[in-house]
Simulated scan of single mutants.
Amino acid sequence: MVKAIRVHKNGGPEVLQFEDITLPAPGPGELLIKNRAVGLNFIDTYFRSGLYPAPHFPLVLGNESAGDVLAVGPGVTEFKVGDRVAVVSAHGAYAEERIAPATATVALPEAISYEAAASMMLKGMTAEYLLHRTYKVKQGDTILVHAAAGATGLILCQWGKALGATVIGTVGSKDKAELAKAHGADHVILYRDEDVAARVKEITGGAMCDVVYDGVGKDTFMASLDSLKPFGLLASFGNASGAVEAFNLGILAAKGALYVTRPTLNPHIAKRETMVAMAKNLFDTVASGKVTVPVNATFALKDAADAHRALESRGTTGSTVLLP
């Protein structure tokens, strides 16, 4: 028996139940992992609330975690008992122990802490594909990062700056503005008080942005489009404010033949060699000091409901980690 957070029905944070579960022995291609730290992400709230349909009930939430291998299933040759590992895989992370596919697991270098790893497997790998694959950021680009003081936003700001881009971030408060500036943002827009697109135009001297990274969704969609230069790209990678609704494609023509994509991590890590390469790029960048992963809040696993409330209230900055 191990302790886990499960949901038996969709709802608010109160549906998160701390209870005993029994895990099977790892099957072919699987690992049994003792979690040392578990990452908290907005996508967890989507599955809890029902915005994203749960594959089944009861469901152990959580995509990312870091810990130690306790047992290996048949056919696993890449890992052994005792290895430090990090995982990004569909569900199962909110637990003291988890079964995970070896294909969704990477070796964790000693230079990276469990807490940092649990904070970056989803958010950091997301930043990796956004900056290197969705739009390959290069010296001289201007990028706009919404929710720049959030966990993914802070990584995007730092890494974008390291790649030579001018980074503009949007935040909701002056405290968050200072945090974003301390993590690579050249300019910060207070979205509650300022017109985002108008400020982007002012900051860039009318040149606008090459790419907008938008994890907020519905509330920022039009401002994101209005912040792009002709042929610019909007990468709408999250729904923190709700999903973007259907819109007239003619808007993209009218605003300068814009591109819009709705990327997500899973297709990028579907190939083992790509996932390993992405993780190496991420871990090397963090180990070099170019990007730090601030873990600004920790909660005991049993207090996951409180962690969800903090996240959904926009009261968190950086990463939040659950500790089993």
Results as ranks from 00 to 15, higher is better:
53 P>G: 01
128 E>N: 13
15 V>I: 13
25 A>L: 14
21 I>D: 10
87 V>Q: 03
90 A>P: 13
6 R>G: 06
133 R>L: 12
140 G>I: 06
42 F>T: 06
46 Y>K: 06
18 F>Y: 15
78 E>T: 03
80 K>Q: 07
34 K>E: 15
89 S>F: 09
18 F>H: 11
19 E>T: 14
126 T>G: 14
60 V>L: 04
23 L>V: 10
41 N>P: 11
42 F>K: 06
148 A>S: 00
75 G>K: 02
82 G>E: 10
37 A>G: 00
150 G>W: 05
131 L>A: 01
46 Y>I: 12
100 A>H: 05
105 T>F: 05
81 V>I: 15
131 L>K: 02
33 I>H: 00
10 N>L: 02
22 T>L: 12
149 A>G: 01
54 A>P: 08
103 T>D: 14
33 I>L: 04
65 S>N: 03
145 V>T: 09
6 R>C: 01
119 S>H: 10
147 A>G: 03
142 T>K: 07
96 E>I: 04
105 T>H: 09
142 T>R: 09
120 M>P: 08
86 A>Q: 03
129 Y>C: 13
60 V>M: 09
78 E>I: 00
10 N>I: 07
87 V>I: 14
101 P>D: 14
122 L>P: 04
13 P>L: 08
7 V>M: 13
17 Q>P: 09
98 R>C: 07
41 N>V: 09
54 A>G: 00
88 V>G: 09
12 G>A: 07
59 L>Q: 06
72 V>G: 07
84 R>V: 05
74 P>S: 03
144 L>F: 02
39 G>A: 02
111 A>Y: 10
142 T>A: 07
54 A>H: 00
6 R>Y: 02
121 M>A: 05
39 G>L: 09
74 P>D: 07
82 G>Q: 05
120 M>A: 10
26 P>F: 06
64 E>K: 02
149 A>W: 08
136 K>W: 15
64 E>Y: 01
27 G>S: 13
139 Q>C: 11
76 V>H: 03
114 Y>N: 13
107 A>I: 13
125 M>P: 03
58 P>M: 10
75 G>P: 01
90 A>E: 13
70 L>P: 10
45 T>S: 15
14 E>S: 15
132 H>S: 15
18 F>M: 12
8 H>S: 15
64 E>D: 10
134 T>P: 04
103 T>E: 15
77 T>A: 12
109 P>A: 12
144 L>S: 05
93 A>I: 10
135 Y>F: 15
16 L>E: 00
133 R>P: 11
118 A>S: 11
52 Y>S: 04
87 V>C: 03
92 G>L: 03
41 N>D: 11
119 S>A: 15
22 T>M: 14
146 H>Q: 02
118 A>T: 01
89 S>E: 08
87 V>F: 07
80 K>D: 06
14 E>Q: 12
12 G>K: 15
123 K>P: 04
106 V>N: 11
